[in-house]
Write a protein that binds this DNA or RNA. Structure first.
Lengths: 135, 135
DNA sequence: TCCAATACCTACTTAGTCAATATGTTGATA
DNA sequence: TATCAACATATTGACTAAGTAGGTATTGGA
């Protein structure tokens, strides 16, 4: 299940894309528009800044701004940055410990196909697509 | 993320399907073959019995048995019984409280499409398909 | 030069869930 | 009547999601 972190992150990115003509946007404004607690939003935005998706500027007149064109952000990349890998099961996370049953596990191929489906879905949509509903 | 409950449930169903010529299969046997704790497996199997996917027989010579042909079980049905609705986000669970933003939420259509994708994937595969890798 | 706006930082809380265990009770069979 | 096995209820420990609290550093403007 996609958590609030990823969902809010996506909404923040769309919000900044929509207001990208207005220069730096303070967190307070985003929080108000998106009806998200400022303090919680700080946590989410922090990871977006550290992941180089956003640029932050301190002080008066500061705020946040996209670093690229909306068409250059992949939705899957935003989600995974905000809440970790999109793996559908624990056995398929990047740091999963190897399972002795994997060689003959009847269900593993199912999870692999499902994982591929999820990945392909989110990695084929850009932030611009999301804004315009092109998907 | 699909939890152990659903993953184990699927493995149990496949196990019973593969051994369906042997009459009632004791939980202990399934647990041993699948390397799952007996006590934990009890919890999972209990929901499968209550959901009428399995039939349990008590006493000596007892155990569990499928109630239908493997081709009559839908994988999605098993997963949802074991661990709840397959909704990708909280806003789309059956008992979600209505959200005031839903009418103009930019991301909601994305989650809806994703939810449909997940549903279609798992509801198009039967237990028999899973056993034979037909998917 | 100081104030207010703003990002940035560390820690904490609270409720809930996941995975599993413990300890029984009921029912069937030989 | 002993044994096997399902069925039932309660509890645990670790972890995470979601959110809060309080403080520090940086910037622009009056």
């Amino acid at each position: 299940m996609i958590s609030t972190k990823a969902r809010y992150a996506l909404r923040v990115m769309v919000d900044l894309a929509e207001n990208r003509e207005s220069g730096y946007i303070p967190l307070k404004d985003i929080a108000a528009r998106q009806e998200i607690s400022e303090k919680y939003l700080e946590i989410i935005i922090k990871t977006l800044v550290r992941g180089k998706l956003l640029k932050g500027l301190r002080g008066k007149g500061g705020g946040y701004m996209l670093m690229r064109d909306p068409s250059d952000y992949i939705v899957g990349e935003i989600i995974e940055l905000a809440e970790g890998p999109l793996s559908p099961v624990a056995c398929l996370t990047p740091d999963a410990e190897s399972c002795s049953r994997s060689a003959h596990c009847v269900t593993l191929p199912l999870w692999k196909k499902f994982g591929a489906l999820i990945h392909d879905f989110f990695y084929d949509i850009t932030l611009e697509d999301l804004m315009k509903g092109n998907y």
